[in-house]
Design a protein around this nucleic acid. Structure first.
Lengths: 107, 107
DNA sequence: CGACAATTTCGATCGGCGTCGTACAATGGA
DNA sequence: TCCATTGTACGACGCCGATCGAAATTGTCG
């Protein structure tokens, strides 16, 4: 059998668990905003190691955890690699225009 | 004489001085988010004392200062009273949809 | 099995920020 | 002139979060 999912499943908040304040807090950090921008620019998944950020790996893990708990980012496990993607549809549903407005900012 | 403007003029950032991260940081606080919601709901100016928030006066002053420095709120002095209003047009110009998305949130 | 690679977890540190109370300044009216 | 009202300035305190390094977990490949 090829099924080897021993890792604890990654938990994501459901739509009704996502709060606007949580999302704003998650986005209100330069490192996390950079991560979100990279995920939005390349509209495919990106592994932790594929992110360009000026912090260590463990700090990246911390930021991704916050982004996931806030409902901004989704994570998918594949082997030892974790692929991250923007929950664009969900965010657009809850807070239409928010993400677009943030990403429209030149800087 | 009726003209008595001796107070230091309130400074507001110009459009090119407003950053998305500054705005997000300003909005990422429950008290400040409440203030913004009140200003948005009543689309007229509100004095500091007219805001309903669970903190002391001096803390309100602090939060309004942050909101003003971030470019979210504009202040206008009239006598001893300071009237505050949302810089809705400016924010919509810089980050179209952001404010709408935030205000669309049920909670 | 053993080595390596990807990521997480843990513990510790350190700075920033939200909060308050008090004192202070400015304005307008009695 | 004196006082009430409105808001600001300042100092202090406590807590949360961003950061790092080291150790642990998990999976893959020889």
């Amino acid at each position: 059998m090829a099924k080897t999912v021993t890792l604890p499943p990654i938990v994501h908040p459901t739509l009704d668990e996502i709060t606007v304040e949580g999302v704003l807090r998650a986005l209100a950090d330069p490192v996390r905003l950079g991560i979100v921008r990279q995920l939005a620019a390349a509209d495919h998944e990106i592994a932790c190691g594929g992110l360009t950020v000026p912090v260590t790996k463990s700090t990246i893990t911390h930021h991704l955890s916050i982004l996931r708990q806030a409902g901004v980012v989704a994570g998918r496990q594949e082997g030892t690699t974790r692929f991250n993607s923007l929950r664009r549809n969900d965010l657009d549903t809850l807070f239409p225009g928010l993400l677009a407005g943030v990403l429209a900012a030149p800087r």
